[in-house]
Design a protein around this nucleic acid. Structure first.
Lengths: 263, 263
DNA sequence: AGTTAAAGATTGGTCAGACCTTTGTCCGGC
DNA sequence: GCCGGACAAAGGTCTGACCAATCTTTAACT
């Protein structure tokens, strides 16, 4: 069913203007816009596709590279190039934001505040829309937190999943993606100092309050509770030295896992 | 000015594992993290840099390409490769979001809602923090709107600048960047149907209300007024056929629209 | 002398062809 | 029937070259 008739990939018109590789990007982008490429689809081999588009392979590769960088495509040596298919909610790459943070010296307070604003909005929406299943998932994660008060690593997993679930319940995938962008950076930073368990009990308690507010369908309560929770989390995390700087893996080829400070 | 002693660009260790070009990306990213590269800086020529990093030119180009795609670097033929320097607030490329919208079929309602949430948060913060200068800029834009009720194109410019100014007044560059990401897509869509002026008067009136709430330092009022404004805007825009699809320019050094004429 | 226009050097953009590494599949041996 | 090796497919990298846009320098002209 993956018959790529050469109809789909039309030869790139000369169009003298602009970079040829940008044309490739546009071409591929438009195919996505037109709905000719779906998540999970595999593109034709580079050599073939280059011929179809009428460009050289390096140029085509440059275009593919651009789309890979923004998380739309993904290449696997020996296998092929695929349209990214994220199982969960759509993901936006957080590395641009991370780079921007370094480049412009964003303060950690700014990042926390951004997350707070996003999560408050999300919590409010979730309180209006959460389904029974979603609320059950939240309850489960809260339970998981209480069950892992002595295992910070495990606790963090439940923490993240809880927020994920709330985001899903908000029904807005865009806000979810944006929130993840910011939260990922903060979680990465936290993972490094997670060993010192700081008030996990209280944190779990706050998550339960959030859950309850959502269950009661009280948007305002959910917002305020979420705000308090994140303010507390911020204070806890800032008490330790944070630095949301480097993070080797982005696309998830979790190879190294060598988070040790070799410096 | 920036003498690039070969000390900065250390040769990439063999590290057999993983893509070589990803190593280049990491190398450059770390240099940014470490603060060795600043906005506006120019990188060494590709040929030299490739030699310094110990990779071939195509590989280096692949790495540069990745960083260009996420808006960190920018290459100009004949001139060089530069670290992007946006005069205004830092910008995040909106094309990933746009692509994701096409790929997963985001509804326009979802996008409006995301923008609404972001702008409400921003308006609230702005009401707490706006300086006199910033409020003056807002007033100016509102005046501009009333002055261009018969020129939809011009009205739109003031509209955008007003929101920009409010975002700047929020003091949170991350929220600002995220909001721009979403708003850009909606504005692009609107630009296409801007000819039919729909209730510009009422829109201007609402902007003035927002301005007043901010001037009075009433976060809640600002939030609510912003919410009403955007709900109205959504309804107006949805009355016409929208499609937030294509948009040629992406990395275009979107100069225009600096919202601080008199600093 | 100052200004402008042309020539040269610099630098990113593209292309061609080749080879390597990884992945996936198929077939034969156990 | 299961497993492992061989072969093919596909992306990753490299060398080397040439083109096109840009910047710089120089020289001619006013």
């Amino acid at each position: 069913m993956t018959d790529f008739n050469s109809d789909l990939f039309k030869t790139i018109i000369p169009e003298g203007r602009g970079n040829t590789s940008e044309e490739v990007v546009s071409q591929l982008r438009e195919m996505i816009h037109r709905g000719e490429l779906h998540p999970g689809d595999r593109l034709p081999p580079e050599r073939d596709l280059a011929k179809l588009l009428g460009v050289s392979r390096p140029t085509l590769r440059a275009g593919i590279r651009s789309l890979s960088a923004v998380g739309i495509l993904q290449s696997r040596q020996g296998a092929g190039t695929f349209v990214v298919q994220s199982e969960g909610p759509p993901q936006l790459d957080s590395s641009p934001l991370r780079l921007m943070a370094s480049l412009h010296g964003f303060t950690s307070a700014e990042m926390f505040e951004a997350r707070q604003s996003l999560e408050m909005a999300i919590a409010g929406l979730a309180a209006e829309r959460a389904t029974g299943d979603q609320m059950a998932s939240m309850a489960e994660e809260v339970t998981g937190m209480f069950a892992s008060l002595d295992e910070p690593e495990q606790f963090l997993v439940h923490d993240m999943r809880f927020h994920q679930t709330v985001a899903a319940a908000s029904g807005n995938r865009i806000l979810t993606a944006l929130m993840n962008m910011v939260a990922t950076i903060l979680f990465d930073a936290r993972r490094k100092t997670v060993k010192h368990a700081t008030d996990l009990k209280e944190s779990a308690e706050m998550h339960r309050k959030i859950y309850r507010a959502i269950r009661e369908h009280s948007p305002e309560a959910a917002r305020l509770t979420m705000r308090d929770h994140l303010m507390l989390a911020q204070r806890a995390q800032e008490a330790e030295g944070i630095d949301y700087s480097d993070a080797a893996d982005v696309a998830g080829n979790g190879d190294g896992a060598d988070a040790n400070p070799a410096t």
